[in-house]
Structures are given as structure tokens and as C-alpha cells.
Design a protein around this nucleic acid. Structure first.
Ligand SMILES: NC(=O)c1ccc[n+]([C@@H]2O[C@H](COP(=O)([O-])OP(=O)(O)OC[C@H]3O[C@@H](n4cnc5c(N)ncnc54)[C@H](O)[C@@H]3O)[C@@H](O)[C@H]2O)c1
Ligand SMILES: NC(=O)c1ccc[n+]([C@@H]2O[C@H](COP(=O)([O-])OP(=O)(O)OC[C@H]3O[C@@H](n4cnc5c(N)ncnc54)[C@H](O)[C@@H]3O)[C@@H](O)[C@H]2O)c1
Lengths: 210, 210
DNA sequence: AAAGTAATGTCATAAGATTCACAAATGCCC
DNA sequence: GGGCATTTGTGAATCTTATGACATTACTTT
């Protein structure tokens, strides 16, 4: 495969294009131009073509892209042709919301285990999953070939959970705790930080006063 | 004020530095170097200094930065010296989690209204807020000087809610629905897209197989 | 079948962000 | 008080990403 380095922003946009295309497909639209995609997701047409060009030629000049084909390509690129099993640690407010989030399923993600250390939560059900004690995590990871873990525990506990995940052999972590995690190089981490986006808004609004 | 354009990535990092500094302060640490911050949040020391340099000179050569002062500066830059009132539309799984999220409060955000159109939800309480019908949104916005709204409704309804928010005079929207919103230029929008981060991970893991 | 229109793919260019490297400033030790 | 160690602030260099422009290809119309 391409050794070429792909900008992470490109991957971000591909994910967005991919879901936009699925909506078009559901509406019965069969062909789409880079301009249509651009307008639908709020980028420039050149950007759309450039992003796709990293991975091949998927369109027809003078015509555009076949929606179903392009969905297949983007899904393939993003590594979503095969389903992914996930584990979630933290069965609190956010963890519960994420476990019941339907769109994950649509994109091929299945949460196969939810873990917590609070005895009052263990044994309870979220969606159709029983909350399990942390001790069971390595077993669930092994049994279900899980490679990705989600952290939804308080910041204080996040590093400890990351360590447990690494030890259990997970290769990637999606972290919702507002703290930077220390993990070995072979483990990919991405943080989702909700306050940051809010503070970009306040920064911009505050500027207006000036 | 500076007319200079600041990279959004800089604002993102400032928000992260700011919260990291608050943790240091809580631990009683009074002085910090760009290298310490860099290590704590996972960027380069030069990056930290450059980011701060957009806004002024906050450190002392040979010494570093005073933690409490730097917190004050970052908070000021991010527009957080004064508290912000927010409204939330969508009292579902995610909306409820967000309303009860404590860290928002710590950063000076107060959710003053939660709205939904589901009659079974209206009147219920989330944290200490009663869920209100959408019709009440303009009033709550006016009464509380709200400038920022959060959208946590299904994608299908998000544009409609954005329109209502714009009409009510909101100037910024934080959108959790996985769809791109159409709003006038004077309204700032930022999307929080959880699937994207997950798909960056799958992209990277899928690459490894190659 | 030729001309006109549409839209891709890509190379060149521009813009933007990060890193480097070092002079300048500070505090500390002897 | 002079030298040494430290760490900032910043201009220049580098690296990365986005935009612009257009040749190329395909379809459509007459
Ligand atoms: N709630 C939100 O809207 C929101 C938004 C952004 C970020 N976050 C972040 O997500 C994380 C979770 O937030 P939340 O609101 O769901 O908190 P929460 O308190 O509702 O849930 C945290 C859960 O983690 C469990 N937990 C704590 N320590 C643990 C450990 N060592 N091992 C296993 N489980 C443990 C707790 O028992 C609890 O069930 C926090 O880091 C928070 O900052 C939350
Ligand atoms: N749950 C998650 O973890 C999660 C994660 C990422 C993104 N999201 C996105 O956040 C949004 C909300 O997700 P959720 O899981 O909370 O869904 P949900 O179905 O639990 O809640 C949605 C709420 O919006 C309300 N609603 C629907 N239409 C409305 C309208 N026109 N006006 C006012 N209220 C309306 C519903 O009554 C419901 O209470 C969705 O767009 C979803 O894609 C959710």
C-alpha cells in the first residue's frame, strides 16, 4: 500500500464524506460531483478531489462519482469493511450514552463489553450489555478480538485504565477524559475533548467585543 | 487587540494548557516551564511558547511561567473571565450526559435551559433543570443573555433547531449531530463528531495490516 | 461526428503551521 | 559582581496542507 503520508485532516473529512454519501444513497441519489459533496459538508470541491486522490481515481470525468461505489471505497479506506468490536470503560453518564448510541452500529462498531469499578453499577444493564468488573476486561478483549477501547472514566482514573487496556493488548484508545495519556508508541490514542470546542466558540465571541 | 489571525489549533492547545495548568495549581505548583507544559500535554516546548507569543509575553526568561498568572491569562484569552450561559436542545442520552457534566461548570459554563419536543420528556428534571418545550427557548435566551446553544438532537432535526437558535439570536452553536449545519455568517458553528475520531483509529489500525 | 458542456485528476503555487536555533534576560552560586 | 545554567521570545527555515488552474476525459446535443 501507499507509503505516502496522509494528512489526518484528510481522514477526518473522508469519514464525513462517507456518512454524507450514505445519506445521499438513502435518498436514492446515484451520482454525485465533488461540488455536491463539497457543498454538503462545507469544504471546497478541490479539497474533496484532493482527498480522494490520495487513494486512487474513483470518479468519471465529466460525470462525477457513483454514490454506492464511492461509499464502498471510503468505507474500505477507513478500515470499516470489516466490523470492529469495542470495549468501554466507565458506565457513567457519558459511557451509558455512548453505549446506546445507534450510529456506532451503523458504521460497523459493536460494543462488546462495558466495565466499571463501582459495585453498584456492576451487574446492571445498559442497552443489552451487563456492566462487568474491570477484572473481566482482558478476557472479553481476547474472546472478541477487540483492538480498540473507549475511556469514559474521570480524568483521575484515565491513566490507570489506559495502562490496563495496554496490558490487555488493545492497540488503540479513544479517550474522553480531559487529560493526556501516556501509552507505548504502538498504541494509538485520540482524545475527544468537548470543552475545547466550546472554548473555541467563546474565544471567537470574545474577540468580537474587541 | 491583535488583528493577527490566530490558528485554531493554537486556541485548541491553549484550552488544553489552561486546564493542565489548573491541575498543576491544585497540586500547589507555582512555576512551570514551557517544557513542563509540553510534556504534560504532549506537544513541543517551542509550540507552547509560540502559542503564548501570539498574545503577549507571560513568562520570565531563565525562570518560566507563574502558574496562577498564566491560568489567568489563558482564561482571559479564551474569553472565560466572565461566565457563559448556555442552552441545550435535546434531552436524550447525550444531552442529559452533557447537562450533568461537571467540568463545564468549572470552566464557567452554566446550562440555563434544556429543551425537547418530546412531551414525555418535557417537565422532567435533569440535574436541577426542568426540560422545557422549544417554544420557551427564545424567552430563556433573552432572560439569561445566552449567546451559545448546544444541539443534541438527531441529525434529522438538527438544521431545524439551528434555524430556531439563529432566530432566537444565538451567536454560536456547538453541534453534536453528525451533519453540517447551514447558518448565517455571523453565527459560529463547531461540530463535535465522535465517529470521526474512532474512524481515524480504524484507519490507522487497518494501515498496519498492509 | 463535431462542438459544447461538465467534471475529474493533478501539477504548480500559495498559504499556513511547526520546528529550529539563538540572542536576550534572569537567577544562583561562589 | 562575574560566570554559569536556565529558559524565554522570536525571526528564519522547513515542513505540511490547501487552493488554483487547466489539460484531460466523458457525455449530450444537434
Ligand atoms: N458527561 C459528559 O457529558 C462528558 C463530556 C465530556 C467529557 N466527559 C468526560 O468523560 C468522563 C466520564 O464522564 P461522566 O460524566 O460519564 O462521569 P461519571 O462520573 O458519570 O462516570 C464515570 C464512571 O467511571 C467509573 N469509574 C471511576 N473510576 C473508575 C475506575 N478506576 N475504573 C473503572 N471505572 C471507574 C465510575 O464508577 C462511573 O461509573 C470524564 O473524564 C469526563 O471528564 C464527560
Ligand atoms: N449518544 C451518543 O453517545 C452520541 C454520540 C455522538 C453523537 N451523538 C449525536 O447526538 C445527537 C443526540 O443523540 P442522543 O443519543 O442523545 O439521541 P436521543 O435520541 O437519546 O436524544 C435525542 C433527543 O432529541 C429530542 N428531539 C428530537 N427531535 C427534536 C426536535 N425537533 N426538537 C427538540 N428535540 C428533539 C428527542 O426527543 C430526544 O430527547 C444525535 O444527533 C446523535 O447523532 C450522540
Amino acid at each position: 500500500m501507499k507509503a505516502l503520508k496522509i494528512p489526518e485532516a484528510t481522514i477526518t473529512r473522508l469519514s464525513i464524506y462517507s456518512r454524507f454519501l450514505k445519506r445521499l444513497d438513502k435518498k436514492g441519489i446515484t451520482t454525485v460531483s465533488s461540488g455536491d459533496i463539497a457543498e454538503g459538508v462545507g469544504v471546497s470541491p478541490a479539497q474533496v478531489r484532493k482527498d480522494l486522490a490520495y487513494f486512487g481515481e474513483f470518479g468519471t470525468r465529466g460525470v462525477g462519482y457513483n454514490v454506492k461505489d464511492l461509499i464502498r471505497y471510503t468505507v474500505k479506506i477507513l478500515g470499516l469493511s470489516e466490523p470492529w468490536n469495542l470495549v468501554m470503560v466507565g458506565a457513567g453518564n457519558l459511557g451509558s450514552a455512548l453505549v446506546t448510541y445507534r450510529e456506532f452500529k451503523d458504521r460497523g462498531f459493536t460494543i462488546v463489553g462495558v466495565f466499571d469499578n463501582d459495585l453498584t453499577k456492576i451487574g446492571k444493564r445498559i442497552a443489552d450489555l451487563e456492566v462487568l468488573p474491570l477484572e473481566d476486561l482482558p478476557r472479553v478483549v481476547k474472546e472478541n478480538n477487540v483492538r480498540i477501547g473507549i475511556i469514559a472514566v474521570p480524568a483521575k482514573a484515565a491513566q490507570e485504565i489506559a495502562d490496563i487496556m495496554v496490558k490487555a493488548g488493545l492497540e488503540a484508545i479513544l479517550n474522553f477524559a480531559p487529560i493526556s495519556l501516556n501509552v507505548p508508541d504502538h498504541v494509538e490514542v485520540r482524545n475527544v475533548d468537548l470543552s475545547v470546542k466550546l472554548e473555541i466558540l467563546t474565544f471567537n465571541l470574545a474577540l468580537r467585543e474587541k
